[in-house]
Design a protein around this nucleic acid. Structure first.
Length: 294
DNA sequence: TATCAGGGTCGTT
DNA sequence: AACGACCCTGAT
C-alpha cells in the first residue's frame, strides 16, 4: 500500500479495487452522504471522515497516519486482494464476471457489530432513504456529539452504544420513526445489555452458533442475521438473500421466478463458498443499479 | 387526493 | 407451510 500524510489528510496512491461510491451504495452502509461528485462523508468509529477521489489518488480527511493505520486500513479492508478473489469467483461464471466488473470497486467494510445489528433490524421492509433518516435520528438523540464535518459544516453524532440506549423505550423509538421495529430494537438492546447475547464473545463461536444466537432476537430473521454475520462479523460465507438478490439470481442464473429463499441461499453458498459475501455484494449492486427483475 | 409498496419478520391459520 | 399485517413516507 502506497500512501503519505499531509496536514490532516492521508493520500492513498494507486489503490486497486476502490470505488467509494460503489462501496457505500452496495447496501452495506447507511451512515454516509455524497457531498460532491467525488467526495463522500462517512461516520464510523466516533469519527467523521471524508473520502475524496482525484484521478489516481484517494484522500482521507481529516485523518492522520495513526488513525489511518489503526482504524481505516481495517475499516476499508485495504489489506485484502480483491483482484485475486474476483479471479476465483468469476471462473466459468459469466454472470459473476459481468457483475464484478460492473461493481469492480466494491469492498466489504469492517463495521461495528452492534451498529450493524440495530441498523439491519431497522432495514427490514423499509426504504434506503428512510433507513438512513431513522439512523440519523437515533444517533442525534442518543449518540455522542462528534463535532462539525470540516467539509460541509454539518453537526455529526456517533451511533449510540448499547449502554447509551439501555433505558430507551418503545414509545421513544416510535418518535424516532422506527415504526413496528421499535419493539424489536428494545429486545435487541435488552439481550445485548444484560449479556444474554455477548456480541464480542460470539466471535469465538461457529457461524451456525452465531446465527442461532442472533435469531433469538425479536425482529431478527434469516436475512438480517446473515447481514450481521457478513458486515458485522466479517464472515464471508454468509449470503444474505433480500428481494434484490432473489430477483437477480432468478433472472441471471435460473431464468424463472418464485423460487424459495432457501434455494437461492443454498445456491449462492454452494457456488461461492468462502466468498459468498462479496459475490452477494456484486450481485446486489448490479441488481439495484440496473433494477433487475423489477 | 388516494393508494401502494419498500434491504423482512412475526403471529395466526 | 402459507399468508396477512406492520410504521412510515415518497412515488405514482
Amino acid at each position: 500500500m502506497e500512501y503519505y500524510e499531509e496536514k490532516d489528510k492521508i493520500v492513498l496512491k494507486n489503490q486497486k479495487e476502490f470505488n467509494i461510491k460503489q462501496i457505500l451504495e452496495c447496501g452495506q452502509s447507511f451512515r454516509f452522504g455524497e457531498i460532491s461528485e467525488n467526495t463522500f462523508y462517512i461516520i464510523a468509529h466516533k469519527r467523521i471522515i471524508n473520502v475524496c477521489v482525484k484521478e489516481d489518488t484517494i484522500e482521507f480527511f481529516p485523518c492522520n497516519k495513526k488513525d489511518f493505520e489503526e482504524i481505516w486500513v481495517n475499516y476499508f479492508d485495504l489489506n485484502r486482494d480483491y483482484g485475486k478473489i474476483k479471479s476465483i469467483i468469476t471462473k466459468n461464471d459469466l454472470v459473476m464476471t459481468n457483475c464484478s466488473k460492473y461493481g469492480s470497486g466494491i469492498r466489504i467494510l469492517n463495521q461495528d457489530k452492534w451498529e450493524i445489528l440495530i441498523t439491519f433490524i431497522i432495514s427490514q421492509n423499509n426504504r434506503i432513504p428512510m433507513i438512513k433518516k431513522v439512523i440519523k435520528n437515533i444517533s442525534e438523540k442518543y449518540g455522542e456529539y462528534i463535532g462539525k464535518n470540516p467539509v460541509d459544516g454539518n453537526d455529526v453524532f456517533s451511533f449510540p452504544t448499547c449502554e447509551q440506549l439501555k433505558n430507551v423505550t418503545v414509545d421513544e423509538l416510535l418518535e424516532q420513526k422506527c415504526g413496528f421495529r421499535s419493539k424489536y430494537i428494545v429486545d435487541a438492546i435488552e439481550k445485548v445489555y444484560n449479556k444474554t447475547i455477548d456480541l464480542e464473545e460470539l466471535k469465538n463461536l461457529s457461524t451456525d452458533e452465531v446465527k442461532k444466537a442472533l435469531l433469538s432476537i425479536k425482529g431478527v430473521g434469516p436475512k438480517v442475521s446473515d447481514c450481521v454475520i457478513l458486515f458485522g462479523f466479517g464472515r464471508w460465507e454468509a449470503f444474505p438473500v433480500d428481494v434484490w438478490i432473489k430477483r437477480v439470481v432468478e433472472y441471471y442464473y435460473f431464468d424463472q421466478k418464485n423460487m424459495p429463499i432457501d434455494t437461492i441461499e443454498k445456491f449462492g453458498k454452494e457456488k461461492f463458498g468462502e466468498y459468498s459475501g462479496i459475490a452477494q455484494q456484486y450481485l446486489f449492486y448490479n441488481a439495484r443499479e440496473e433494477q433487475i427483475g423489477k
